[in-house]
Amino acid sequence: MHAFANPAKFLSLARPLTPWLFWLGLTLILAGAACGLFLTPADYLQGDSVRIMYIHVPAAWLGMGGWSSMAIAALVQMVWRHPLAGVAGRAIAVPGALFTAICLATGSIWGRPTWGTWWEWDGRMTSMLVLLFLYFGYIALARASAEQAGGIGDNGGVSRVTAIFALVGAVNLPIINRSVVWWNSLHQGPSITMRGSTIDSAILWPLGLTMMGFSLWFGAIVLMRMRAILAQNKVEARLARRAREA
């Protein structure tokens, strides 16, 4: 772990990795989407609208996975004081919020032809909307604390309060996951569980491609944003030193 504590070491790995993740991810997304749009059969009940699943499910997974990673980064930041943990947490927030929004939007579009409604306040949809607001809160908090500190500084501008917010917000994750089991909801129960999948393999298989593709692409975006924060930090540090010398 501490091999990456040095930002220079991290950058020597992140620089070549970024384009690989990006293009590999994009290729897998396009392949999965093409297969899901044109090759797989329609669902017996939902018809063609089931094809929205190939983007809705990866978006849900990354929206929730993003916050899990931010919570882990916050823990690492507070306990081990790892200099890159805050940078990572802050870099995840924007793509995490994006995927949560995509999950909500595609779910809404999917709900209209299948359930007969754009939006209902059921447990799953409400808790997912809460996650989106949590992301907005984190982004605003991180920005405000960086501004107050007069620059990005250590931890990528993620103050202790922001890190604690990421940890506390993680409470929402098991609630989202269990919402369709605990409460009578319009959203169906989980299809893919530890015991197997209730989605027939003829419909399921492109989902693996888009899941993998969006995850790699998410990684590429996080690396880009981390590199941007580190470079910006370097600029700020240099300018500050120059001002002191002058």
Binding site: D48, I52, I55, A59, A105
Partner: peptide, 17 residues
């Protein structure tokens, strides 16, 4: 509906990239 969902996703992901 399918086209709207995919287009929205493409727009969002490419914008953030």
């Amino acid at each position: 509906f399918i086209i709207a969902a995919y287009a929205l996703t493409a727009l969002g992901t490419l914008g953030v990239s």
